[in-house]
Design a protein around this nucleic acid. Sequence first.
DNA 1: CTGTTAGCGCTTTCAT
DNA 2: ATGAAAGCGCTAACAG
Lengths: 343, 343
Amino acid sequence: MKKSNGLTLKKVADILGVSNATVSNAFNRPDQLSEKRRKEILAACHELGYSGPNQAARLLRKGSSNIVALVLPDSLEYMVSDPVANQFMRGVTSVLEKNNLNLLLYSGQSQSIQSVVDFVDGFICYGAPRNPKLIPQLKTSGKKIVTVDFDIEGMASVNIDNEQAAYQIADQAIRLEQDNVAVLGLRLVDSEQICRVYDKELLDCNSSISHRRLDGYSKALSEKGINLGGDRIWNIPESNIKLASLAAREALSCQPLPNVLLCMSDLIALAAIREATAMGLKIPEDIRIVGFDGIEESLRSTPKLTTIHQYSDLKGETAAKLFIDNDNHNEVLGYELQMGDSC
Amino acid sequence: MKKSNGLTLKKVADILGVSNATVSNAFNRPDQLSEKRRKEILAACHELGYSGPNQAARLLRKGSSNIVALVLPDSLEYMVSDPVANQFMRGVTSVLEKNNLNLLLYSGQSQSIQSVVDFVDGFICYGAPRNPKLIPQLKTSGKKIVTVDFDIEGMASVNIDNEQAAYQIADQAIRLEQDNVAVLGLRLVDSEQICRVYDKELLDCNSSISHRRLDGYSKALSEKGINLGGDRIWNIPESNIKLASLAAREALSCQPLPNVLLCMSDLIALAAIREATAMGLKIPEDIRIVGFDGIEESLRSTPKLTTIHQYSDLKGETAAKLFIDNDNHNEVLGYELQMGDSC
DNA sequence: CTGTTAGCGCTTTCAT
DNA sequence: ATGAAAGCGCTAACAG
């Protein structure tokens, strides 16, 4: 299908009796012709029903489209389901919108970036994409890249200090050497199952925020003289309520019963609170539970969740700004220990 | 910026000693050359690091991009904030993803569709865009269009019978001729303020679901012999919690106090429940409150909300399918009266 | 300040 | 089954 009136810049120029360059300049380079002439041409175009240069041709010629791809870690559905991703998007969209940039959503599960790479000015990647093959593709795409919650060498990024944050929250949750600690972790090993980590090979340890958080927990634990075995660490393959509930139930029904639960997201922690409560456990007397993220719901839960609050909207805004400013630096944002009643 | 390895189809063809048409065919028209030759060429391309035809050039030539624009009623932020829009998106994305189509988000507040129209294969419009100027633009764009919750003449659409649904829920809520009914409506008049409708001119009455719902309410009311004045109808300019709470408070603090509240969305109804409860009113004894949409939270509220449940995810799926199948018909989906304890 | 012209990289007839 | 060549609509370098 083509535009209903088959007007092109060339035809318009012919009709107006000027060269196509002049028409093009009228739209793109006001300084190249007199104000008066420009106004005339623009008015005439409007009259004719020509709404401006074809963007596809312009893209081919100039190599830029004003479209930014947001690469999500998982499927597109993920973004709509996850409250943290949700808030991040909000930050991104607010800045892009102000700068007249358009947003294309792209799944981190895709086979390749090929189907969009030529259409977009660059990529904002929210979390390491589920399909790791995308990373080298992004690297060599020659496009602008901003990564969030992970890094690609040489590219701009936005992160928080996950290890330090995890250390703080764990330090808050643990009291005694006798504490029996369990960790409910996110994508720690390469498995689609809920399972204990044991001594399975850890997934891409370096780039994963989950592993940084685990390092932070471990540091706090070892400072208190507690040893955390692989049998006390659960792997949850994906951040959703159902899986989180299942994992929580599993952790709460094993012997010895943990009295401290370190959860790598609020979604998991809230599920754990529900499960523990359902089992008749008192929080924090019988079991202390902490989360990570600081989503809104964590403020409303009973008991109120103790967690690390991330400024996800700011993360989104920052990522978008780095993108727009072509700023290539590695930003580290702050976070806040949010004290609740769950520990 | 261009692709790091400056390979083009033509160069690849030169290197391989074949014509560019052959390489193009290898990628796009398997039937145009021998299987063996094709494999060779594809393998050689992979070897060289040529990942396939440039999509921008292809778009210019063919006029199709595999990108679908989703036009949201308001700013992009809206989609992330509103649970109904959220679920709709989920439906859309799940279908598009399966069909290898990419999703571009577009704000219904934009000045024009010009900045993306040439990039996309068409538009799915979720609700009438805030900027009405977009509608004629869409109409004459020559692109595929599917509208949801409103209509553009001659284009495919997905709707529910808002009038009938509103009638049913109102019929459920109203008991006696003596009932004192108030309506909390959405964008009924052209105002950015919370205000009563009085006899202000109603906004684009024909295409608006709010007016269809109002018609449904009115029908139920007149059947019971109740007259609803413009002073009992509130206009809320936008569906968000803050505005909804304010409007609810206003309605609940006027004389005579309404004992039936017909709310045009669950977000509004839930806010009204909170406000009424905070004021010490008993639901449904002192005041009956009904919503519209059937979002998840409506099942969890206390009291559970009586509302009209829409299958928003199905709406999204249906819209995407109509789009993909180039199906031009006007689909009307069902809904369900969800009985709760709020009336 | 305006016009001419060479591509951007591809797809698709049409000829071979 | 393959190759040559036209042109999708535009921008920018250059010449006037």
